[in-house]
Nucleic acid binder design. Structure first.
Length: 476
RNA sequence: GGCCCCAUUGUCUAACGGCUAGGACGCGACCCUCUCAAGGUCGAGAUAGGGGUUCGAUUCCCCUUGGGGCUACCA
């Protein structure tokens, strides 16, 4: 049974890197018909917050990544919040102590800082000096009874190597001597990441640990723990990180990092999924993937080793692709609130026809607001360059006035007839079609670029078109 | 500092020892066209550097350089 997990720590919103780790795990599970588990690693009491939990749920929800076991829906291996599993960590820590593979350490953070500084001054690696290993059992009992602050440390095997057989990177060997007696349980009684992670992955029967590259160096410590407990290892797959434009780890400095912020900016979740799936993974030359196609094609073999830079250009292109491909009704649903917020309540039929006119012209959903204004508001200004070009001509007045007159008499006011009016007028006045259309466009929209003119004229309606042409004539 | 990972156009990537190093975004030109988009065609643009191994290296090995990670009572 394939069982994978996404294990974020709730110290902020779900961001791009986390979202992709979640996605790869989810795709892997869905591809193999396995289970995808969400586990919240909230053992950092200082930084974990309830709001972050919610933000992570919302982010996953927005992306459409659902979990088979985890918070809210539970599961047979719960609880899925690490802070609710404290008794488990405590038990296993005691087992390790009893087996002589872990010990109590009473060194204070201050003492450790001094030792570390001294080691660095001697140009030695800043490792723990194992001093508490040698404490007499009586002294340990005494200090424990006294309630002295302490941590529990892992007793590192003296020598040997820890070998990570990584599904993406191949065999990676670490010498145990470069590690030190790392902390398993903090003085507040909470487990550290490496300890809780191993226990939970084992207890939750995780088969594949798919996680960011930043954990590769942690893996030897974890392997040592699996071995101390006599447990088999899960398969490991370390995926490359996502970096910002400056090749540094993605952070606030790189703009929007939380996945939900992209919703607010106007990206579609499917476009985001498609984009982050392709960051560090590929399948031939295919660029566009539906969810179903991603599930079908995804495999760890297709994952690259090199870090990827998060670049908005391709996301923008993808978003445009997705906007063009969604059902017009759905586009209307997405755009309506924004348009209403800006221009007030509108007749729905009219509003939805307007929005559909712009389906090929949006990169981001909110682009609609700035493109469609003249359909809801009077034209109060003319594009200066356009006015210079189309209104300053000698025949501008004649064209607009003739056009206004004919359109004013047109009945029914429909596209085919409107088109005929423009064509006939151009012919009669011995003008190119554009010479009629351009001034008209400027007159009725104030702009030099709009959707095709006959559509705009028809949708705006006879009354508006006539009025706007009159205003333009007055302006001339 | 020590250990580990990574290295193909500006960006995402393909080529898993063998054609003129392929595709996508972006960029430029052209076509379409009433404008803007969309769409189509074409173009510029890369194997970080140096050593090996080999008949032959993007591909395998080593060194250098560059970037990233871990080295916490963060995860």
């Amino acid at each position: 049974m394939i069982r994978v997990r996404f294990a974020p720590s709730p110290t902020g919103a779900l961001h791009i890197g986390g979202a992709r780790t979640a996605l790869f795990n989810w795709l892997f599970a869905r591809h193999h018909g396995g289970k995808f588990i969400l586990r919240i690693e909230d053992t950092d009491r200082e930084r974990s917050t309830q709001e972050s939990n919610q933000a992570i749920f919302r982010g996953l929800d927005w992306l459409g990544i659902d979990w088979d076991e985890g918070p809210n829906n539970g599961g047979p291996f719960g609880p899925y919040f690490q802070t609710e599993r404290l008794a488990i960590y405590h038990d296993y820590a005691q087992k390790l102590i009893a087996a002589g593979q872990a010990y109590h350490c009473f060194c204070t953070p201050e003492e450790l800082a001094v030792k570390r500084a001294a080691a660095e001054a001697r140009k030695e690696p800043p490792r723990y000096d194992n001093s508490c290993r040698r404490l007499a059992p009586e002294e340990v009992q005494q200090r424990l009874a006294r309630g002295d602050k302490h941590v529990i440390r892992f007793m590192l095997p003296a020598a040997g190597e820890s070998i990570v057989e990584d599904l993406i990177r191949g065999r990676v060997v670490f010498k145990n001597e470069v590690l030190d007696d790392f902390v398993l349980v903090k003085s507040d009684g909470f487990p550290t990441y490496n300890f809780a992670c191993v226990l939970d992955d084992h207890l939750m029967e995780i088969s594949h640990v798919i996680r960011g590259d930043d954990h590769l160096s942690n893996t030897p410590r974890q392997i040592l723990l699996y071995q101390a407990f006599g447990w088999g290892l899960p398969r490991f797959a370390h995926i490359p990180m996502i970096l910002g434009k400056d090749r540094a780890r993605l952070s606030k400095r790189h703009g929007a990092t939380s996945v939900i912020a992209y919703n607010d900016i106007g990206y579609l979740p499917d476009a985001m999924i498609n984009y982050i799936a392709k960051l560090g993974w590929g399948h031939g030359d295919q660029e566009l993937f539906s969810r179903q196609e991603l599930i079908e094609s995804f495999s760890l073999e297709g994952v690259t080793k090199n870090p990827a830079i998060f670049d908005l250009d391709k996301l923008n292109w993808l978003n445009g692709q997705y906007i063009r491909n969604i059902l017009p009704e759905r586009l209307v649903d997405l755009c309506e609130p924004l348009v209403v917020a800006k221009y007030g309540r509108q007749d729905f039929t009219y509003l939805s026809r307007v929005i559909r006119l712009f389906q090929d012209r949006l990169v981001l959903i909110p682009d609609i607001v700035n493109l469609c204004g003249y359909f809801f508001e009077k034209v109060t200004a003319y594009d200066p360059k356009g006015a210079e070009k189309y209104f300053k001509k000698d025949n501008a007045k004649a064209i607009l006035s003739a056009l206004g007159q004919r359109l004013g008499q047109l009945d029914p006011f429909v596209k085919e007839h409107i088109e005929a009016v423009f064509k006939e007028l151009a012919k009669e006045m011995n003008l190119k079609l554009g010479e009629v259309i351009h001034p008209c466009r400027l007159a009725i929209s104030g702009r030099t670029e709009t959707p095709p003119m006959y559509d705009v004229v028809e949708l705006l309606g006879k009354e508006q078109v006539s009025a706007r042409i009159q205003s333009a004539l007055a302006y001339l």
